[in-house]
Simulated scan of single mutants.
Amino acid sequence: MASSTITPPAAEDGRPPALVSGASFAGLSTAYWLNRLGYRVTVIEAAKDLRRGGTPVDIEGETIEILTRMGLADAVRARALPPRGFEFKDADDRTMGAIGAGTDVTGHERYEIHRDDLLDILLGAVADTAEILFGRSIDRLADGPEEVSVTFDDGTEGRYALVFGCDGNRSNTRRLVFGDGDQFTYFMGGYVFLKVVPRTDLLPAHMSQVYSVPGRMAMLNGYDDRTDIGFGFRTKGQIAYDYRDRAQQRRLIHDQFDGLGWKVPAMLDSIDADDDFYFDRLNQIRMPSWSSGRVALVGDAGYCVSPLAGFGGSMAIIGAGRLAQALERHAGDHAAAFREYEDGLRPFVEEVQQRAATNGLSTMFPADAAELAERDRKIAAGEIDF
């Protein structure tokens, strides 16, 4: 297709144009704040629609504060799921220990909401104020002193004051700006599988249950109308597999979990119906910097904390909120704003990443018999804390 040039939005109404790559929690939240700050916002998403599905999102602490400032906290509360309990099980389905839900350990508000519901709330907050283009991605970008020139995958071009990569763990924006490969990927030593099935007979609603043996974990999340089936296993190194071969990925799970007890046989019976599931390595994104010139990363693209943290959605919303505060304080000076955003948020990100890589792994994925025995001792003593 012949290349064409999109007239910079600033030429139309004087607002500086900003591009957000990724219609995710990070992307939609960033778009919301950029519009509030006076930018003319375009959001592009490589998929044909919002990327739906996945496990519910925990909303607590600073995330509630930011959603309140966005005027969305009441909408989240209205769609919040009932409080959830968490049980550790043995092979005979006996409960070894349990953790309640509804508040965090200090008694503060805490909610769980279906991922799709939160996406819809965020989309509704920006649908009338940002241009959202699905099926579009960035092919090339050139960061200059006054603007970023972007060439899209369909050959069209645009010029933007700022560009934000909010496109997830495998971020295309990160690759284009900071380099290809796994240089920023910290492999945590395992793989995870998740599938949502329309069954309600595996466990009670509003309950999570986990069963662990050395190096392997099976987990269930129960709801009124569905169940999340999760598997995880540890490895010493990364394994070779074709990310497009869903049958191969299912075989990997069967190879790891066939023959285990508890509810694992029934779980395995439910994962072969179709290819609608998530399978990936367990990793974090650790970067020395989240910005370069006029381009900055938000959420998993810059600082994925891993599914074990249970905090990815909240971290994306927090990141967008912190970025907006910095841009407002340093109006017209994106370099100073990006420095403040990173300097302020990085200690919190690193704390969450470290907790996931240590306590999260040892609690959910005990590597060997000794680590499992210590985990079980903590459960019996009531010392487990998420």
Rank of each mutant, 00 (worst) to 15 (best):
S3G: 08
A11N: 08
D13Q: 13
P17S: 12
F25H: 01
L28Q: 06
Y32N: 11
L37P: 03
T42M: 06
E45D: 06
R51N: 10
T55V: 09
V57F: 06
D58N: 11
G61W: 00
I64R: 06
M70K: 11
L72M: 09
A75H: 02
V76W: 02
V76E: 03
R77H: 07
A80T: 01
A80W: 00
P83S: 08
E87M: 11
K89R: 14
D90I: 04
D93H: 06
I99S: 09
I99L: 15
G102Y: 10
V105Q: 13
H114V: 04
H114A: 10
R115W: 01
L119C: 09
L122M: 11
V126Y: 00
A130Q: 00
G135Y: 03
G144Q: 07
E146N: 12
E147C: 03
T151S: 13
F152I: 09
F152H: 12
D153A: 15
G155D: 01
T156R: 14
T156V: 05
R159V: 04
A161I: 00
N172W: 00
N172G: 15
N172M: 08
R175D: 13
L176I: 05
V177R: 02
V177M: 12
D180P: 03
M188Y: 02
M188H: 11
G190Y: 05
Y191R: 03
K195Y: 01
T200R: 12
M207W: 05
V210T: 14
V210L: 12
V213C: 11
P214L: 08
M217H: 06
G222A: 07
R226M: 12
R234N: 06
T235A: 12
T235F: 04
Q238E: 15
Q238V: 10
Y243D: 12
H254T: 04
K263A: 14
L268E: 01
I271G: 08
I271C: 08
D272N: 08
D272M: 07
A273D: 13
D276A: 12
R281M: 09
N283V: 11
Q284C: 06
R286V: 15
V295S: 03
V298P: 14
C304A: 15
S306R: 01
L308W: 04
A309C: 04
D333F: 03
A336T: 06
V349Y: 03
V352L: 11
V352H: 09
A357E: 07
G360D: 01
S362V: 02
F365Y: 14
D368C: 02
E371V: 10
R375G: 00
D376W: 02
E383Y: 07
